[in-house]
Simulated scan of single mutants.
Amino acid sequence: MTQTLQARVTFQTRNLYFVVTKEQKQLTGTVSGHFQQQAYTPSDFPVIGDWVEGTLYDSDKLLITAICPRKSLMTRKMAGLTSDNQPIAANVDTVFICMSANHDFNLTRLERYLYIAWESGANPVILLTKTDLVTEEQAIEMSNNIQEATAGIPVISVNQLMDMRQALDSYLAPKATIVFVGSSGVGKSTLTNQLVENAHQKTKEVRKEDSKGRHTTTNRSLFFLKNGCSIIDTPGMREIGIASGFAENSSSFETLESLAQTCKFTNCQHETEPGCAVQAAIYRGELSEERLKNYRKLEAEKKYNERRQQFKEKQQNKKAKRREKNYEE
């Protein structure tokens, strides 16, 4: 008799998945042929953090037939010209955006991470890492700059000399899932190693001249704390593309969008129109021109990717109709 069960994806390499059942039994999994035929985009396949259903065979293998409903899915646009969305992690409660207190400190990049974090359905928290590399005054200034740019999102300053479990304790609840994202060399794997016994994630020194790290984590991995909390470590992201299909508004630009709703004209482009609340806020020093520029860039990128995705979906629909017609004949 075949046994159907549910398991969670903890690791993926090519078409092979490592999964853990609710009883903590480790299995290897592959998707069924029918599953592959129904999947059109990368997000249609299992990703780290997914709960999947399947049939057990050979005592330790799972033939994956379905993905359980996701409560969140973090994605970014794939690198290059493709318009496909690359899934990063699923069923995440808290996204820890890691940015180190060195040359990696970049508020524009932070806004991109916030954009994809909010749109995933998870809650973002910003970790300012490696604060031991700067003076206390510099660390406080960086933290204040982040808070001013992110409108109330929690900011936690950490370094490797601290007790990470104590610093992040309120987010490490049983059954909660957190993910660390950020550039290479910001300390994601170091954080994972300090929180998870036997994680053994590889770490490397960053280059002194520009503080850039090298890719030490090459695959996404999910680990479990003893209390049942799940932690996902991810490789560094050099390119943070805005995926298609995002909502019109993003909470990462909530202040700017609230201002835009009070402009005199509903189609205001926030340039030279009379009664523009956004330009008035810039004049008063309440909003920076750089933030408006970043917002426009993200919106333009999002619309471009949406057009590419719509074109791709039309092509896929045409191919599907041709397959159906050939099958009927």
Score class of each variant (00 low, 15 high):
D50S: 02
G54V: 02
P42W: 10
E23A: 03
K25W: 07
Q24T: 06
A7H: 11
T41E: 08
V31S: 10
Q12D: 03
Q24F: 10
G49M: 03
D60S: 13
Q38A: 00
L63S: 13
L62A: 09
V19F: 12
A39W: 01
V47A: 12
P46Q: 03
P46C: 11
T2K: 15
Y57I: 07
P46R: 00
S43T: 15
N15A: 10
T4A: 14
Q38P: 00
T21G: 10
P42A: 10
V9H: 05
D44V: 01
E23F: 03
G29V: 11
D58E: 07
F45R: 02
N15V: 02
T28R: 13
Y57L: 05
Q3E: 12
T13F: 15
T30M: 08
G29L: 04
P42H: 04
Q3N: 11
V52F: 03
F35H: 06
T28Y: 14
R14E: 02
L5I: 13
T21C: 11
T4P: 09
F18R: 09
V47K: 00
Y40M: 02
Q3V: 15
V47Y: 06
A39E: 03
G54N: 05
V9E: 14
D58A: 14
Y40P: 02
T41P: 00
L63T: 08
T21N: 08
D60W: 04
L63A: 09
V31L: 11
F45V: 06
N15L: 03
E53I: 00
H34M: 13
V9W: 04
D44W: 00
T55S: 08
L27M: 01
D44K: 01
N15D: 14
V19C: 12
T41M: 07
T10D: 08
S59V: 05
T13P: 02
L27V: 08
S59E: 15
P46T: 10
V19K: 02
G54K: 00
T55P: 00
L63Q: 15
Q3A: 13
V31C: 14
V19D: 05
S43P: 00
Q26Y: 01
L5N: 08
E23P: 00
E53Y: 03
L27D: 03
K25V: 08
D50E: 10
Q38R: 09
A39Y: 01
L27I: 04
T55V: 05
Y17K: 06
R14I: 03
T21H: 07
F45Y: 14
K61R: 03
W51F: 09
L5P: 12
G49E: 11
P46Y: 06
T21P: 12
T41I: 05
I48D: 11
